[in-house]
Amino acid sequence: MPTRKRQLPEIPPELVGTVHVTPLDRIYNWARKRSLWPMFFGLACCAFEMVGTFAARFDPSRFGMEIMRASPRQADLLIVNGTVTKKMAPQVIRLYNQLPEPKYVLAMGACAISGGPFKEGYNVVSGIDKFIPVDVYIPGCPPRPEALMHGFLTIHARMERESVRDLRWYRKGEEVDTSVPVPELGPDLVDWRLAEQIEALQQPATDNQQPAE
């Protein structure tokens, strides 16, 4: 009986030495890939295109992701689809914090990536990646359904690179807290991680005058 050589996925050159590919990983990643549950979460225009993607013509249930869960506790993929406004940002971040590990974030459309065409608006966050780590960006305004599904496939590709050994949610001993402090609405959006910088920025402003209004 000829022994079949195990075909292991190729390791990208930048990850050689950090990633170990084992058959266990392959099974594990295959299972995770085929059961990625997105959260039913809509922000703006892209949300409607996402609804269109999840309908009959494109049907992502072929990838095992037909169930869109309205509760973040039951989902593992957050599709940020649309403009994140400053008023909405605390909610988006709260939802991200509530997602159980392993969690993936997909920024769909120009607005979620960088604020897009509304970037200069006073109530618009310049990209959700300022607050939460984004795994895959899908440019487009809005991206076609195929582009969104290509984004899903890209997430699958990212999953394939992961290994059971070094995933953060399996690490013993050290608790990794991935939650992000929820910003508050003050005179503008207050991101508590920036408190010191804001303080530093405000100090000279009181001595001199306000930077150009």
Binding site: G115, K119, E120, P187, D188, V190, L194, Q202
Partner: peptide, 26 residues
């Protein structure tokens, strides 16, 4: 240069003069 990196905090944020997050009580 990404346009937002030219705004003071790189975040499209601005606060009134003298406003400090330390003493801010909503």
């Amino acid at each position: 240069v990404m346009a937002e990196s030219r705004t003071p905090l790189g975040r499209n944020l601005r606060y009134p003069p003298g406003w400090s997050p330390e003493d801010w009580r909503p």
